[in-house]
Amino acid sequence: MLSRELVAASTTTLVLSILTEGEDYGYSLIQRVKEMSGGEVQWSEGMLYPVLHWMENKELIESEWREAESGHRRKYYRLCAKGRKALHMEKEQWLAVHKLLTQLWKTEPRLT
């Protein structure tokens, strides 16, 4: 499992990246990250929402309440233009770190 610090540092980037594939809601975001990382990245469930609201305050994402299939209301988040720009910058930075570490450890980059 990833350290708390690394999970914290990557949360915004992960949320922005998932939302490039389309809008999504909190519970689904948590499940997707957990499944895609094979359980390596686990967010404390209730704590994701303050992060989403912070991102909304920063106009990186926007939200909308809609009715789900169950009949209950659900809040969906989607990426904003500012979020796309932020993700572009984040991506460059993460790739720079990845490249550097790959060189230092003399390992082959893994794409899967």
Partner: peptide, 16 residues
């Protein structure tokens, strides 16, 4: 709004 969103999360989690 915060509470309603957490309730929505709780319902999804219970269902799963």
């Amino acid at each position: 709004d915060n509470v309603e969103e957490l309730v929505s999360h709780l319902r999804a989690s219970v269902q799963r």
